[in-house]
Amino acid sequence: MLKIFKIILATFVIISVGGPFASAASYANQADIDIIAASNKAYVDFIKAINDEKSVANGAALAQAAAASSTFNNVASHNFSSKLGVKYIKKSAEVKKYAGEIKVLLDKIAVVLRERDYNAANQYLEQTHNSVKKYSAAVEEVNKAASESNLYAGCLFLLTTIAAAAMVIGSFIWFAIGRSKRLNHSLLEARKAVALSALTPLAGAVILYTTFILTGSTNSADGIYIVANVLILIGLASYVSSIIKYIKLNDNTPTALPAHSTTKNRR
């Protein structure tokens, strides 16, 4: 029985830490994705305009340069998610660095376009292409860091689910052992209450893992993650409470039913 209690305690700790931590690790970085996507589109629109003589002549390319500069400035000043790990934070800092470089170069292109200094514009454009390559590589590293973070979160969700299942199995085995030892009715009911209370954290863990598999770390799933974590926390609180009640009852109750006497009175 002591071994079973150790297993239950270990799984209890894993579930207590794993569920909420995994939810934090799977934080959706949709705002980061959107602002990078906007910068990519702005740069594509600028390149189309700068490569079109008519757009250069009528000022459309100048307008696109200004728009792209503003977009990359947004990236450079953006607060990237701090909930996807140290590597994500480090790589996003590089993205911001190169976005700032591109912003400065686009501003210079805008200046020489106004002055119709196309030789200078071509030189700045070449520098911009080089900075964009570095920017794209940095964005790729950010995407990899986000994927690694989400993979880690998925492993934590799975581990939490396995731990919750182990806690349920261990609790019901413990209850079955009590029945085999012919514990009195009150102790058996207390063990049964412990086993049944373990089902709630398991339900929360299953919801967490299933939601992650089906939807990933998207904002639309935040409500489900919250509900699942509430189930886990409430279930664990109920589980602890049931164990405490059992311990108190066990200290004041005979552990087994008295054996029936098979001797007969002799005359």
Rank of each mutant, 00 (worst) to 15 (best):
I224F: 07
I4W: 08
A25E: 06
G235E: 01
A176T: 08
F80G: 00
F72W: 07
S81A: 02
D107T: 12
I207H: 01
S82W: 10
F212P: 02
V142P: 02
C155E: 15
S26V: 13
A146L: 06
I4S: 13
V86H: 04
K87A: 11
L151P: 12
I7H: 10
A198V: 05
L2I: 00
L9H: 13
I8D: 09
R266F: 08
K41R: 14
S261V: 07
V206S: 01
K181A: 13
A63Q: 14
F80N: 01
T263R: 13
H185L: 15
V142D: 06
I4E: 12
P20C: 09
E148H: 03
N58P: 01
K133Q: 09
D251S: 10
I224H: 04
S69M: 09
Y43H: 05
S186Y: 05
T215A: 14
K83T: 06
I14N: 03
S149D: 05
A57Q: 13
N130W: 14
A203D: 08
A65Q: 02
A28I: 02
V112Q: 15
A237R: 05
A145V: 13
S26G: 15
Y209H: 14
S81C: 03
V206Y: 00
F212K: 10
A67R: 11
I162V: 13
A57C: 09
Y135Q: 03
A153N: 08
K54Y: 11
I247C: 12
I234S: 02
A22F: 03
P201V: 04
Y43G: 02
A31M: 04
T128R: 08
V13M: 14
L159S: 14
G204W: 07
S81G: 01
V17R: 14
N250K: 12
D251F: 08
V104G: 11
G204V: 05
